[in-house]
Structures are given as C-alpha cells and as structure tokens.
C-alpha cells in the first residue's frame, strides 16, 4: 500500500473524489467516525477553495508516523493567485465569494496542525494534519 495518494482538482466532481479518498485513508488508519467527518470536511473545504479561487490544483493525502503516532496529512496545493492577507482569510466570516467564510478557520479548528504558505501570483500551499490518539 502506498502511503501517498493524490487527486487533481479541476471540476466539482474532483472535490467529491478527494474527500472520498481522504475518508478511505482515514478509515484505514483507524480514525473514529467523528475524526473521519472532520478530515472529510477539511478536505472538502480545501478542495473547493482550489476549485473556486485557483481554478485547479491538487489534494494530496499522506500517511504519517511520528514518535510511534500515526496521522494523516492533507496537502492542498495550487498555482492560483495566492492570498493577499492571510490574517483576514483566517477570520470567521471573511469571504470574497459570498460564502460563509467558514472554510479556512474551520479547517484549522477541525485539524491538529495547520499551515499556509502563499505567494501572490504564484499560488498557495496549505498543510493540515490530524493525529490518531
């Protein structure tokens, strides 16, 4: 079994494929139903953001082991416009698309670790990890 798999995000259907992949890996790793829902939801938010704001990109799912603890890493990467003000997009309710603005701050709360790297005109790389306790 490979410990890395990914889905190219180009259409709305790829959002469905990405979260199904994530849920399957989460299940195989032994995450309970609540964590499976958290992980699936986080992937759905990140994949939809790629689709909406960058047009296309990639969701990668990795299995992690650190100090004997297993985890799942979600990488959402795109070569889109980048995010001008990270602090702003991490506020609840901030949206440039008429959405709820719940996505990014929500993913941060749903997961254990959360990191954004973004460069204007080059793209965005978001990494979120959940550890199996």
């Amino acid at each position: 079994m490979s410990n890395q798999s990914s889905v190219e995000i180009q259409t709305e259907w790829d959002i469905v494929a990405a979260r199904q992949l994530g849920r399957n890996v989460a299940k195989e790793l032994g995450f309970g139903t609540v964590d499976q829902a958290r992980i699936t939801t986080a992937i759905s938010e990140l994949a939809r953001n790629i689709y909406l704001y960058a047009g296309q990109g990639r969701i990668e799912i990795q299995r992690l082991t650190e100090n004997g603890i297993n985890g799942i890493l979600i990488i959402a990467a795109d070569n889109g416009p980048g995010i001008p003000d990270i602090r702003k997009v991490m506020e609840d309710g901030f949206s440039t698309s008429g959405g709820l603005g719940a996505g990014l701050p929500g993913v941060k709360r749903l997961m254990d670790d959360f990191k954004i790297e973004t460069t204007l005109g080059e793209g965005t790389d978001i990494r979120a990890t959940k550890w199996l306790r």
């Binding site: 609540v34 499976q36 609840d92 929500g106």
Partner: peptide, 14 residues
C-alpha cells in the same frame, strides 16, 4: 443529524 455531523458543523463555526 449524526453526532459526527453536529460536532464538525460547530467546529466549522456554523
């Protein structure tokens, strides 16, 4: 609404 759904909705801030 399943428990897992209720929990994630609140954590999302919805």
């Amino acid at each position: 609404i399943q428990p897992a759904v209720a929990i994630t909705l609140i954590e999302l801030g919805i």
